[in-house]
Amino acid sequence: MSDKKAIIKSENFCFYYGSKIGVKNISMEIYPKSVTAIIGPSGCGKSTFLRSINRINDLIANIKTKGVLLVKGHNVYDKNTNLVNLRQQVGMVFQKPNPFPKSIFDNVAYGPRLQGVKKRSYLQQIVEEKLKAAALWGEVKDELNKSALALSGGQQQRLCIARALATNPDILLMDEPCSALDPIATGKIEDLIDKLQTDYTIVIVTHNMQQAARVSERTAFFCLGELIEYDSTVKIFRNPAKKQTEDYVTGRFG
């Protein structure tokens, strides 16, 4: 893996909510076209780190950062960063399925429309393609005008993935995408992640260690805002270097 050039690279990245530390001194490299899982106990800053990558954390007032966080070689916290471009390159899927209260079609077409695509036929093409990529096409192809909220939770989450894919991102951030879903829906999402990693760089935050083990190639373990260990998933789960990691993955974490 190390022969690949990192698509996301952070060096001593620190994030503060006002005076409270979110994450500190994170230095890690995330490689393209692979799945990277971030695990750790609640409040350890894994979501904070993930949400820093596309600066969706900017919604919160009084935030401060230190260090460098590079996405495709550009510092995202640079003053000149174009947030629109950044977020189109770095798509995001949230913890709870959050489709817009619009039709399925409009949900997927939201991103392309923002990019200025107006032609209906082209939009239709994108929607079909992305729904297929999100393994939802077969279930919804006849009711694209139905409200997205009428779908089941798992379908909604896949729709959100399709919506995120529609802007043609290189990176897909997933913030506990299965935590609100039942096992069957979770399974489908995991299959989807597996399929998507051939085209996209996926960073997934999860509480579910089996999930991390199942889907990811590399795993980072966060604790109390710090990166404890970052290695291949096999190593993290079988033979972790640090005691803390071992305690966590074996369930002895207090």
């Binding site: 596309n54 969706i56 919604l59 947030l83 629109v84 471009n85 950044l86 977020r87 189109q88 798509g91 995001m92 949230f94 709870k96 959050n98 489709p99 817009f100 209260p101 619009k102 939201y110 991103g111 923002l114 990019q115 959100c160 919506r163 995120a164 529609a166 802007t167």
Partner: peptide, 24 residues
């Protein structure tokens, strides 16, 4: 979450307001 989703897709504040917040 609507706001986050919209901003996450690269929408500006105004677009988010008009096309997501206002209808909801």
């Amino acid at each position: 979450s609507y706001v986050e989703a919209s901003l996450g897709l690269g929408a500006g504040k105004l677009t988010t307001f008009i096309s997501v917040i206002l209808p909801a």
